[in-house]
Every structure is written in structure tokens, then in C-alpha cells.
Design a protein around this nucleic acid. Structure first.
Lengths: 166, 166
DNA sequence: ACTAAATAGTACGAAACCGTACTAAATACA
DNA sequence: TGTATTTAGTACGGTTTCGTACTATTTAGT
């Protein structure tokens, strides 16, 4: 483990943090007032993957505490962008379904961002982006896996600290 | 602008968002209780770049609203990790200086993360990371530049919406 | 079947984050 | 020099985020 590697990793994480920041800002600039990236992320996931996910599934997908997801889903429900219904297979649980309004909002947002995307693709060769994607996936997979295979340290997947035990 | 490109961009931003999430979680797991990534980021920046930055310079560096930085710096000051002193060149302004405790905390944190870093470098060829870094920089630079060159939309650099005017 | 452990979700409170509105100081420019 | 604009920072309030603690249900182990 060289000093160089350390600088490299800091560099990578630093760029990633700022890109995330800028991407979120840009997304939120196109969302209707009152909605933020967290809300869109849920709508988008429900559409890309599938309707009817449970809040815990969402929390796992985004690596967020389930209390945060509850809050976000609640906000979406209050705006009529999703429906939260009981899970027929598990009476503890619920399922989150998109409404027509939710689907429309997601699609409209993507449409509205098209020029941004086009500008980006015009400025940066998509081949380059395509090239980094596998490395990003590998990096994500490693960190994700390591998180689940780690020692005692508190782990925020389940906020109660119950998770590690088994 | 192809459908494929859209999926590609979504993929890239999605991975970036989750890597950021996981990286933050890992960093916070090694920080002393009560300190979060935002705090460390400031300490690290002051040490990597230079002491004596003003809050606004920090806000620009991290692409965050200045009110957020005020809050973060205030917390660091209360813990004695930085000193906030008047800016001799500008009586509106202040400068943020590291204390010995602040420097020590930053260094200790990096030391504590060394095994994590080593594991990452062992699992993922550093050459790959080195390879994506320029693309990440390019992506960041593009988004950053575009943000500053953009139309009317509210821009969260200065939260007052004063910024665009000139 | 019965008990213990794990899991899904919520309530609650604290901290972070950020937009608006303000004050004070510096800068632009006429 | 004098006035208008820009800039640095703060006060304040609302929302997000998240850790802790709790209830209800399911799953595992005997």
C-alpha cells in the first residue's frame, strides 16, 4: 500500500463525491419544487426494476437506512406519486406501487433532462463513459460485498444494529 | 442522443451515487462518534490544499451552499478541530485554521482507514482506478463548468440566487 | 407446537442540510 | 467622491436524514 495509492483513492472518491453532488443539483433543478433527488430515485427505481417493491428492498438497493426510505416513500405517497399497499405475502410488510402521476413525473423529468444529457454526450465521448462503467461497477460491488462481510462495527443497513449477528 | 446513451448515463450516475454512499458510510464508521463525512472532508481539504481558507472558498470547493459550510465549520470549531479567525484582508470574512487536534484527527483517521484502502487496492487493480480518474475529472469539469455557464435556473452556489446576475 | 431469533415497519428526537432574508463590508463605476 | 452592486457571513425555519427504541409478524430451532 503506497502513498501513491492513497492519493489515488482519495482522488477517485473526491471526484465521485463532487460528481454526485453536481448530478444531484442538476436533477433537482429540473424536478418540480418540493421534490428532491431522493424522491426521483425511488420513482426511477420502481420503473426501471419493477413496481411493488417493499421499502426494505428499496433501502437495500440504495444502501440507505430504512427510516430514511420510509420518510421518502411517505412524501411520495402524500403527493400521490406512489401507492403504498399491504404486502399480500407478509403482513408486516408493504408494497410500493407507482401511480400514473408517478410514472408521468418520472418520464417528464427524463424528457426535460434530455438536453443536459445530449450536451454531456456531445462533450464527452460516450466510449469513455462506457469504459469507466465496468470499473465503477467493480468498485461498487467490492465495497458493497465488503460491507456485508465486515466485522463488528455498526452497520447502517438495518439501523438497529441487529444485522451483524447471524 | 440515443436511448442507449441515456441508459449509459443513468448507469454511470447510479453507480457513482452508490459508491459515494458506501464510501461515506465507511469513512463515518472510522470517524469518532459525532463526526461525519462532511467534517472530515473539511479537515482533509484544509490539509491537502492549505490552511486559512475562507468558508466561501470551502463552499465552492465542495459545491455546497455556504450555509451548510457555516454549519459544518461551526461544529468543527466547537470541537476545537479548527480555529475560525477574522480575515485580515477582508473584514466581512473569516479564515479557517486547523488546530493540532484537527490535524491529528485527520491523520489518525487516514491511518485507521489504511487496511480498508489496502484491501481495495488488493482487490481492484490500481491501474484500473488510475484509468478512470481522468474520465471522472473530465466529467466533473464539464458539469462544473456547465453549472457556471447556465441559463436562469437557480444556482445553489450562492443560495440567494444573487450569483447568476453579472 | 413452542419458544427464540430475525425481520418489516413506525414513532420519536437530534443533527444535518439548505433556501430565504438579512447585515456589513468591499468593489464598480459614474 | 458617492452611489449601486456584489460579496461574506449569519439568523431563522423547514425538510431531510438517520440512530434508537418499539410493535407486529415471520422464520428457525427444538
Amino acid at each position: 500500500m503506497q502513498e501513491d495509492d492513497r492519493a489515488l483513492l482519495f482522488g477517485v472518491f473526491n471526484e465521485i463525491a463532487i460528481i454526485d453532488q453536481l448530478g444531484r443539483a442538476q436533477l433537482e433543478a429540473t424536478l418540480p419544487k418540493g421534490l428532491i433527488a431522493a424522491h426521483f430515485t425511488v420513482l426511477n427505481h420502481l420503473m426501471r426494476v419493477a413496481d411493488g417493491r417493499t421499502p426494505v428492498e428499496l433501502a437495500r438497493a440504495f444502501q440507505l437506512p430504512k427510516t430514511s426510505v420510509t420518510h421518502t416513500v411517505g412524501a411520495l405517497a402524500k403527493r400521490g406519486l406512489v401507492d403504498v399497499r399491504p404486502n399480500p405475502n407478509d403482513r408486516r410488510s408493504k408494497c410500493v406501487w407507482l401511480t400514473d402521476a408517478g410514472r408521468k413525473l418520472r418520464n417528464d423529468t427524463i424528457t426535460a433532462m434530455a438536453p443536459d444529457f445530449a450536451a454531456l454526450v456531445a462533450a464527452i465521448d460516450p466510449q469513455k463513459l462506457l469504459g469507466i462503467l465496468p470499473v465503477l461497477r467493480e468498485l461498487r460491488a467490492f465495497m458493497d460485498h465488503r460491507r456485508n462481510a465486515e466485522p463488528p462495527r455498526d452497520r447502517p443497513l438495518d439501523a438497529t444494529g441487529t444485522a451483524p449477528s447471524g
